[in-house]
Simulated assay, not measured.
Amino acid sequence: MNVGIVAQKGNSRAAFLAGELRERLSTMNVSVTLDAATGESLGLDGRSVETLGDCDLIVSIGGDGTFLFAASGADGTPILGVNLGEVGFLNAVGPDDAVEAVTAEVAAVRDGDQRVRVVPRLVAVGDGWRSDPATNEVVVQGGRRGRGGGVDVEVRIDGSLYTGGHVDGLLVATPTGSTAYNLSERGPLVHPSVGGLVVNEMCPDEGMPPLLVAPDATVTVTVNGVGGRGGTGGTAASGSGADEAVVVSDGKHSYPIDAPTEVEIRRAETPLRIAGPSSDFFEALNKLD
């Protein structure tokens, strides 16, 4: 059995716990693979996080950002999150309980009775390209926000026109991502037990309210123009960066696009699988204050 460990970069507490877990797992005849940054912090060899999908279990130590980083390379491998952050929607295990929780999860994998929660992810598809899966959200936006920036879009849900006009961007979020960027854009909170995707216009000139659609819906965003607030295909000042459009996956992976073009956003084939105990959604919400 092989367990991957990803510790928050630059966090000495996370690195110490990663070393402690590695030592304990070695006594259980479990191989441990560290991501590159974690290995460097412990003076050991590590691998790129994108290669950890061949592990039987991945342990993320840090905040939700570290969990998303680990998820980017998991490729369906269950992830157990140890929370060293402030909120912890994805990380349910506290640091004092980490060793016990990880060893219990290893035993469950070996016994064939591991239970995981399946969480949808999103993928964006354009002309000749496909994004990495996103756990939180996919955003189609202009090169910059505000005056002279943004994009002119039409948004369709399973082929039916929902809205259109000039916006800073168009955000599609999973229930998991409803508490992240979507919330800062005044989108609704979605309980983890509720299926669906949030479609949320970002600062529209004239728009529709955020919409919750079916989890298997396809959201098609037609980008007709970039920049020039209030007019299709307006131009921006030279060198402003507003004459660019981009698709962003989980705030990490960016894909430049040229208007006019279409971007389809839909549920990814491989979901995120979360191991270990469930976090208390409402307790985590209270920490957002």
Rank of each mutant, 00 (worst) to 15 (best):
G241F: 03
K9A: 15
V263D: 07
S178Y: 07
A70L: 05
G251D: 13
M202A: 11
D64S: 09
L42C: 09
V3M: 02
G43I: 13
L80K: 00
R24L: 09
G143T: 03
A98C: 07
F16Q: 15
V59R: 00
T163C: 11
G46L: 03
T179C: 13
L57E: 02
A173W: 04
G46A: 04
D54P: 00
L52E: 02
G230T: 06
G43H: 11
S240D: 12
V30I: 10
E206H: 15
V139Q: 08
G19S: 12
V167I: 10
T135L: 15
L122S: 03
F69Y: 14
R156Q: 10
S160N: 07
R117H: 02
R22V: 01
S240A: 09
D127E: 13
E283G: 08
A107I: 05
V119Q: 07
S240P: 00
G207N: 08
I274H: 00
L211H: 02
A173K: 01
R156K: 08
N2M: 09
R144A: 10
G76E: 02
V221W: 02
T176Y: 08
L90F: 12
V194R: 14
E40F: 12
I58M: 06
G164H: 13
G62I: 09
G65L: 06
E283V: 08
G169M: 09
S238E: 15
R145A: 15
A284C: 15
N200Q: 11
Y181V: 04
E20D: 15
R117G: 01
A124F: 02
E206Q: 15
P175I: 13
S160V: 06
N182V: 13
T77H: 00
G43K: 06
P215H: 13
Q114W: 00
T220Q: 10
G73T: 04
G150R: 04
D111T: 00
V226D: 01
S12I: 10
